[in-house]
């Protein structure tokens, strides 16, 4: 089937029909799309790069949002203690969150799926080894594992990605392994073996597509968690260093000045974070319910 036919088949499918009629799913997709746009184009559209020290003016610090007294029309949502425009800071923060969310999820998805496929298909000692690792890791909360890695290696963007990936691959591995084990006994796999395809090909060309559905669901739901985790770790001061943008760091800054009545530094970044994760979860929820055969 050529691309045009595939697209029209998809548009007529039950899944897409359910999507069209589900306002939540559509809202989620729209939100995610807007955030993606922000992440990619945002920094070019805002007036200030809040992380370029040369562009900041301390005289601009602590200006309230535009609807309060004492505000400056240049800064719609106010400024922080360094004179950073909240809007700009948030936009840069969004880019960081989206990037980290995406990277971590991609890494976990790849590593987890590959390990899960191998584990489920080959079985035996390799399976026990991988599953043993999975089980040990599952008994510990991901936050703790991430903390462990960050405490040991220090702060930094790539270190956070590493730390969060450490605990994230596990769910994929387990799910994929289960599906791989179920699929390997099916006839089409037998047929492929008989034809003489090497194992690698069978795994990736034949079994993998059948495993993708739960993987996609896990991925959409995981991005939100990753984004929140990064924000949390940054807030605690063990995540992204202060020289880089992060929504979590912004909230942390705001926390320090909470009692001076400078509420906007904390509230807006958090709100934006929440919105981003809500979008992810809306779509993720829809996909999960859609792909769950047991609910039909």
């Amino acid at each position: 089937m050529d691309a045009g036919k595939r697209i029209s088949k998809f548009l007529r499918s039950e899944g897409f029909h359910n999507f069209k009629h589900n306002p939540f799913a559509i809202a989620g997709a729209v939100i995610i799309f807007l955030f993606l746009l922000t992440a990619v184009f945002g920094p070019h559209l805002v007036s200030q790069n809040p992380y370029d020290l040369a562009q900041l003016d301390l005289n601009d610090s602590y200006k309230p949002p535009i609807w309060q007294e004492g505000s400056d029309p240049r800064f719609i949502l106010g400024t922080d203690d360094q004179g950073r425009n909240m809007v700009s800071a948030i936009v840069y923060g969004v880019r960081m969150s989206v990037t980290i969310g995406f990277c971590v999820t991609m890494i976990c998805m790849t590593v987890g799926t590959v390990l899960g496929l191998i584990s489920g298909y080959k079985g035996g000692r390799l399976d026990s080894l991988i599953m043993g690792l999975v089980n040990v890791q599952l008994s510990f909360p991901s936050l703790l594992i991430a903390m462990l890695v960050l405490i040991a290696f220090g702060r930094g963007v790539w270190k956070i990605i590493l730390a969060l990936s450490f605990s994230g691959w596990v769910t994929y591995a387990r799910t994929v392994r289960g599906t791989a084990m179920a699929e390997k006994n099916k006839e089409y796999v037998e047929a492929a073996k008989v034809i003489g395809f090497p194992e690698r090909v069978i795994l990736f060309r034949h079994i993998l597509p059948n495993v993708m559905t739960p993987v996609i669901v896990i991925a959409t739901l995981q991005i939100g968690t990753v984004i929140l985790s990064e924000a949390t770790l940054s807030f605690l001061g063990i995540g992204i260093p202060i020289t880089e943008p992060s929504l979590g760091l912004l909230v942390a800054q705001g926390y320090n000045v909470l009692f001076s009545g400078l509420w906007w530094v904390s509230v807006f970044p958090g709100l934006v974070l929440m919105l981003l994760v809500v979008g992810m979860n809306l779509l993720g929820d829809f996909l999960r319910d859609e792909f769950n055969p047991r609910l039909k």
Binding site: G224, L228, A231, T232, F235, G248, V251, G254, Y255, L258, S266, V267, P269, G270, L271, L273, M274, V277, V278, M280, N281
Partner: peptide, 10 residues
């Protein structure tokens, strides 16, 4: 679920 806990506390 989507809300950052630390933000909610604040």
């Amino acid at each position: 679920i989507s809300m950052p806990t630390f933000w909610f506390g604040i």
